[in-house]
Design a protein around this nucleic acid. Structure first.
Length: 526
RNA sequence: GGCCCCAUCGUCUAGUCAGGCCUAGGACAUCGGACUUUCGCUCCGACAACGGGGGUUCGAAUCCCCCUGGGGUCACCA
């Protein structure tokens, strides 16, 4: 039997990171078994701009490298893949249920239902819908319809039964049908509701494994009942834990109110801060428009799909007791449902960064350069303050900077922290605290720097090794330690108290810019 | 509140199904230390968990029961 899994997003305009993890597990299970992964669009609810709202979702799949065998754009033998276009299938299934007396038209108004519910609540008893419409004669129904009453279609739950599933993650789970209200399966206009459409679709698309988040576990009772009533074989269910907000066991939510809360949580804060730092500079709004609950956040701020893939794979799943770093191929090869964890897994930004760091460091200088350039371009920076960063002349300098940066880049947008290499000398900002400490208050250092400046004027060639040797000789001649001047030199040339190796910095900047900057710094000391 | 699910370091997890190999392993974070002109990297070290109570057993993180706690869900949303 070919394994077939699916993910069924509704077109909301963005991809939720928790949803992405669910999609990933579905994709992994299909790929691990040489099966198929299907994308189906649950657009029964909204009608406008489906295409527009869908694109970011498809983009997230493409970016992470989760390809789909059937679905939008690729189509396939079980289409259409938009629920809004599958009305005939639902209608036929509904008629089948009606004919078999497993579904009935309910003429109660929403107000009536609400009243029933309130009353049950008042009497502290579990609400179960009252099947008044079952008592209606055909004449009465006609009468109601003539008065404009539009019935909904309800599935008739056999209340004396039990329903059970054997979940691949949870094990045996059982419900008492006597506690389950008859679910509405079609609205008055005939449009299907989720619990019904999903069953019809999963059956028709021959889905073998329904892998979804735990929050759907309760729905499964009703869905299993409908599968049975329609004579379909039950797929295998696997309810994986949902992705929780950092440091909590609560489902990671997309709601604005929660987002505001996340923004202040210590574990999450740095991701929001990064968004506020980076996105405005590259014309993408701020954390208000793009936040770490969305997959797009990670793409736009410069994470690697490999890093996110690795992190998401380890969220609720493990290979063994020590393997952390895993390639796509490794996970596909080894992913099994029996190693899925049962309890909710909190997204951990720190750990995510550690995976990211690993995969970033696997990249060649060329690949890193390619990843960084778009950020420099969008931030409108000029290489050596002159050439557009996209130009071939600029590329070599950027590549040399990235080489000097070594393992200091975690995400591509980190390159923006080194904008001192891209601004004109007269626009260089000196870190005030460092400037005070290393130049203003340290008069000896400033004096030494003035003296060393003349050496830099003539040292030849102006590269890291030679300037390094030059400073050593200088220190020896002056009878000082490197530490007495080098900090002042660093702050004067780069504006910052930290960064790559000092002499790499000098070489990167070149003689002219170094001298300009030293002059400017020394002038500012007075 | 009803129903359902879950419960090991701060976090992600290994170990639970087949009880002893667990004085509970790894990773991230944190804190020390080494290296370095700074930052980072790297290396070394430290801290740190079986929610509680009863059983069963020679022996329980592992099996059983109860309690507690957390979460999910109860729509003419998905």
């Amino acid at each position: 039997m070919t394994i077939r899994t699916r993910f069924a997003p509704s077109p909301t305009g963005y991809m939720h990171i928790g949803g992405m993890r669910t999609a990933l597990f579905n994709w992994l299970w299909a790929r691990h078994n040489g099966g198929q992964f299907i994308l189906r669009i649950d657009d029964t609810d909204q009608q406008r701009n489906v295409e527009e709202a869908l694109q970011p979702i498809l983009q997230a799949f493409r970016w992470l490298g989760l390809d789909w065998d059937e679905g939008p754009e690729v189509e396939g033998p079980h289409g259409p893949y938009f629920q809004s276009q599958r009305g005939d299938l639902y209608r036929a299934a509904a008629e089948e249920l009606i004919a078999a007396n497993r579904a009935y038209f309910d003429y109660d108004t929403p107000e009536q239902i609400q009243a029933d519910r309130t009353e049950a609540e008042k009497e502290k008893r579990q609400y179960l819908n009252i099947r008044r419409s079952l008592e209606l004669t055909d004449d009465e129904k006609r009468q109601l319809e003539a008065n404009g009453r539009q019935p909904v279609l309800r599935f008739l739950v056999q209340r004396d039964e039990k329903i059970a599933i054997d979940d691949d993650v949870r094990g045996h789970v059982e419900w008492d049908c006597g506690l389950i209200s008859d679910p509405v399966i079609c609205r008055a206009d005939g449009s299907p509701l989720y619990n019904f459409a999903t069953v019809v679709d999963d059956a028709q698309m021959e889905i073998t494994h329904v892998i979804r988040a735990e929050e759907h576990l309760t729905n499964t009772a009703v869905q299993a009942l409908i599968f049975q009533a329609l004579g379909y074989e039950l797929p295998t269910f696997a309810h994986i834990p949902f992705v929780a907000a950092p440091g909590t066991k609560e489902k990671l939510s997309k709601r604005d109110k929660k987002i505001e809360k996340y923004r202040k949580m210590p574990q999450f804060k740095k991701m929001f801060d990064a968004a506020d730092r980076v996105f405005p500079r590259i014309g993408l709004g701020s954390s208000e428009t793009l936040n770490p609950v969305m997959v797009e956040y990670y793409e736009q701020i410069g994470y690697l799909p490999e890093g996110i893939f690795n992190a998401l794979s380890r969220l609720g799943w493990s290979y063994d007791d020590k393997t952390e770093i895993m390639s796509r191929e490794f996970v596909v090869e080894n992913f099994t449902l029996d190693r899925v964890v049962k309890s909710p897994a909190g997204l951990d930004p720190d750990k995510l960064d550690s995976y990211q760091q690993h995969w970033m460091n696997e990249l060649s200088i060329e690949e890193k350069t390619n990843g960084c350039i778009p950020f420099l371009e969008r931030a409108n920076l000029k290489a050596d303050g002159l050439h557009p960063v996209g130009s071939p002349e600029a590329r070599d300098g950027i590549a040399r900077l990235i080489t000097a940066l070594g393992e200091r880049l975690t995400i591509f947008s980190d390159i923006l922290d080194y904008d001192e290499y891209f601004v004109p000398d007269d626009e260089l900002q000196f870190d005030e605290k460092a400037f005070n400490k290393r130049l203003r208050k340290d008069e000896t250092a400033a004096k030494l720097l003035r003296k060393f400046r003349t050496q830099l004027e003539t040292v030849e060639p102006f590269d890291a090794a030679t300037t390094d040797a030059c400073l050593h000789t200088f220190c020896e001649a002056e009878g000082i330690k490197m530490g007495q001047i080098i900090h002042a030199l660093r702050v004067a040339t780069t504006g910052k108290p930290k960064g790559p190796g000092m002499f790499d910095c000098l070489e990167l900047l070149g003689r002219e810019r170094c001298l300009n900057r030293i002059d400017r710094a020394l002038a500012a000391v007075k």
